[in-house]
Nucleic acid binder design. Structure first.
Length: 302
DNA sequence: AAGACAATCAACCGCCAGTAT
DNA sequence: TATACTGGCGGTTGATTGTCT
């Protein structure tokens, strides 16, 4: 009768996310949203993660509009002020701070602002009386803001509004997608290994860095990093650090181009043409280069 | 240089509310 | 109406990193 767990804890991966997982998740969510729901999404994306974990990873870390660290004084003051008003309603507080997540705000509070808050309240009143934090005294928790306050909470940043028609309705296709996704992941790993081996000429490029590059490149689908400026990979000014594989538009998962969504400027590359989709990406290795300036931009997301 | 301690933050846990069936 | 399921939230944990002795 109890709640069934959202996923089988024995069969899902836990702990820190790898760059490859991030790349897959990011690309999938960019393209398909959560594919209907978060619980099913990792299965469809070929990720061995709990759906909740995927959701959290996306919301707290991978979303493009996020900012990490570097809280400004204004933000500090706003958090202090809002906390004074409503207590630990982190999601509400975070919603007032563009680019911040509740987890970020919460962590920041716990590590920095709490002390400041306590010291100021201590100065202000002989008997410190911080707003209710969870349990404690009678009926507190649901402080002024409990569920009611969240009524005016702005809608959370929406996932890309993606058409999942056909993706979530067609069981066979989903299975096929999963299968392809698994293949794809294996290929990604292979590519990373290949990159590691072939980029040793770059003096500062370690194997890990090469992996990061590959993963990052895969992650760099068109939406946020290039959506405003168009797709074309910019040529490196000096050409000294070209990335040999154009994977700018590679999407680890793609159903097909037949839906028309790809449009003319989608230079479907690596993964559309990968063996998982009946082709080969070998021929694409000479595609347009991948410059480090762009790579640096991509890496900002890590 | 090494160990101890503190700070940070990503990730997990468990609960609750809303929604679909 | 009852039940099951999912999304979302706040609290907490634990690994990693930084600083101090």
């Amino acid at each position: 009768m109890g709640r069934s767990p959202c996923c089988d804890k024995a069969s899902v991966k836990r702990g820190p996310w790898s760059q490859e997982e991030d790349a897959i998740l990011r690309s999938f969510v960019e393209r398909f949203g959560n594919a209907g729901n978060w619980i099913a999404m990792p299965h469809k994306a070929g990720l061995k993660r709990c759906g909740k974990s995927c959701r959290l990873r996306w919301l707290n870390y991978l979303r493009p509009e996020l900012r990490h660290g570097g809280f400004t004084d204004d933000e500090d003051n706003l958090i202090l002020s809002l906390y004074g008003e409503m207590g630990s309603k982190w999601s509400v507080i975070a919603s007032k701070l563009p680019g911040r997540t509740d987890n970020d705000v919460k962590n920041y509070w716990n590590t920095k602002l709490k002390k400041r808050y306590l010291s100021t309240t201590r100065e202000a009143t002989p008997q410190p009386e911080p707003p209710p934090i969870g349990g404690g005294g009678g009926g507190d928790d649901d402080s002024p803001s409990s569920q009611g306050a969240s009524q005016d909470q702005p809608a959370p940043p929406a996932l890309v509004n993606l058409d999942t028609t056909g993706l979530i309705d067609n069981v066979e296709e989903n299975d096929e997608l999963l299968h392809k996704s698994d293949q794809l992941y294996a290929e990604l790993m292979g590519l990373i290994g290949q990159q590691s081996a072939t980029t040793t000429t770059t003096t500062t490029t370690t194997g890990d860095a090469a992996s990061a590059r590959a993963a990052t490149a895969v992650a760099s689908t068109s939406s946020w990093s290039r959506s405003s400026s168009g797709k074309s990979p910019t040529a490196s000014s000096d050409g000294s650090s070209m990335w040999p594989v154009d994977v700018h538009d590679a999407v680890p998962l793609s159903l097909s181009e037949s839906s028309g969504g790809a449009s003319s400027n989608n230079s479907s590359s690596l993964f559309f043409d990968s063996p998982a989709f009946g082709g080969s990406f070998q021929g694409l290795l000479d595609s347009a280069p991948f410059d480090d300036a762009m790579l640096t931009q991509e890496l900002l997301y890590y």
